[in-house]
Amino acid sequence: MRNFLTAVALAAFGASAALSQTALAQTVGFSQIGSESGWRAAETTLTKQQAEERGITLKFSDAQQKQENQIAAIRSFIAQGVDAILLAPVVATGWDSVLKEAKDAEIPVVLLDRQVDSDKSLYLTAVGSDLVHEGEVAGQWLVDHVAGKECRVVELQGTTGSSPAIDRKTGFEKAIAGHDNVKIVRSQTGDFTRAQGKEVMESFLQAEGRGQNICALYAHNDDMAVGAIQAIKEAGLKPGDDILVVSIDGVPDIFKAIAAGEANATVELTPNMAGPAFDALKAYMDDGTVPPKFIQTDSKLYTKADDPEGEYERRKNLGY
């Protein structure tokens, strides 16, 4: 019926994309963790953009890193009778009762970026990235790039014990397993920060014959890579050339570095989790298509061949 109306509307008013979507005007509540990092700011910006493009009214709530604020926001969304709820959960536990309230009110909930340990029946689906896969993509790029040549890799890990650090390490090691020419010779935490990335890279350079024995750097995030690139430059070497640089996240500054030839590759952790979420919601509401419980976003690899200047321009105003 709705499709028919849409068709009528399209026929009557011409191919106006905006109008076709007002036919299923929706209100979606979005409970965001807060603004803990540039990536999350970009996620918020993109969610708002995606909602606007689809003619969805987005009710946005910033939880300032507190679960109780998120629970209060979800309850208020339920009271307002929204059509769906997006939730980026700050922690994994303690969501059972509020998710059940949403389920009882027949409001589908989609998790963004992070998972919860509640029963899977309590939410429609979760959109997120596979962190192990990201590490694999980075490792595979390096294996392909060195093409059988000896390569001693230094690794800048994320915060010790954090799940991105563990998973991105596992994925990379998986990808280089069986390629004896590529091996990790030094691995230390750089705490996901630029300053630590630079300091630890300086010590790697000292320890490995002023960097002469290092063929590549693998950093668990771009910020550490950006810091390390400065350390490499200050040691009188050419990052991207003397030492290959591959990292993960796809923040604007790494695209600048790739454009300048100082970094070689980055694996994007897309902040556009809302796009797939809205698609899944639309399919579910249009004809009841139940999405899988986990929708994995693309971990796209960017190198110098992928228009880094353009990617930088596209990202610089997202709030990173």
Partner: peptide, 14 residues
């Protein structure tokens, strides 16, 4: 701090 980094222990021990 620097000594720990140079010595090359796993970061769990830092």
């Amino acid at each position: 701090d620097t000594g720990i980094l140079l010595a090359g222990f796993p970061s769990e021990y830092n």
